[in-house]
């Protein structure tokens, strides 16, 4: 314990720097994935025939082991943060895409008919009805992805992308437990913290009328069925 503390005192600046790199890698990847997958999911929900093939394709990426995916990046994009972000983004697409698709398709058809019949345009229907109702499900996907990306960014050290993985691998090669811990503890704390933060944000963003358990549960079971079907 004493050893851990002295190592921390000696290298806290490095830890801070690596944490910043780690957050940068994860944040950029998650934001990029959201920017791609949410609009794509919305598009697919209106083009269901296309949806199955696209979702299947994207889910193939998910089956590639993460280390292997980083390996593929080396001949394609070289090493450093950019290929790492590319790989992390690819990995993050699926859960957001699927939850967006399922969330929007899960909106009760009667509400769509009511909206249309009352004179909403397609965009109004999307912004006023579909997205607010699907938001709970979409945000659940984003939270999953945030946690997954922070964990995976640890391995990005193997393609020289930086982040807290650097400290862990460094400690491993030196067989130095305190150093390993000084990488592993911040990364774990980061994941837990982000998870709690997003859960809180989710609760806060959920429209009051939807916080009723019945509605949320029915959307969730729908999402599960959909996932099981794929």
């Amino acid at each position: 314990m004493h050893q851990l503390w002295t190592t921390f005192q000696a290298s806290w600046e490095v830890i801070l720097e690596k944490t910043q790199e780690h957050i940068y890698l994860s944040l950029v990847s998650v934001v990029l994935a959201c920017l791609i997958a949410i609009p794509l999911g919305i598009y697919l929900s209106a083009h269901r025939r296309l949806a199955n093939s696209v979702i299947t394709t994207v889910s193939v990426i998910q089956t590639i082991p993460s280390l292997a995916l980083f390996g593929f990046m080396i001949p394609l994009l070289g090493i450093g943060p950019k290929p790492a972000i590319f790989a992390l983004t690819l990995y993050a697409l699926m859960p957001i895409l699927q939850n967006t698709y399922v969330g929007i398709n899960g909106v009760n058809p009667a509400l769509i008919e009511a909206g249309k019949g009352l004179g909403m345009t397609r965009w109004q229907l999307l912004w006023i009805v579909q997205l607010p109702i699907a938001r709970v499900v979409i945000m659940a996907g984003v939270r999953l992805v945030a946690v997954q990306t922070i964990s995976m960014a640890t391995i990005a050290t193997y393609i020289a992308a930086g982040g807290l993985g650097d400290i862990i691998t460094n400690g491993m090669s030196m067989m130095d437990t305190p150093t390993i811990m000084l990488g592993a503890i911040p990364v774990s704390l980061l994941v837990i913290l982000i998870n709690i933060l997003l859960l809180q944000l989710n609760r806060w963003l959920t429209p009051k009328g939807l916080s009723d358990k019945k509605t949320t549960v029915s959307i969730n079971t729908h999402a599960k069925k959909r996932r099981a079907a794929l």
Partner: peptide
């Protein structure tokens, strides 16, 4: 327009 399933938007007051 009034429909059978009522169709009130659950997230709106």
């Amino acid at each position: 327009y009034v429909i059978q399933q009522i169709g009130l938007f659950p997230h709106m007051t």
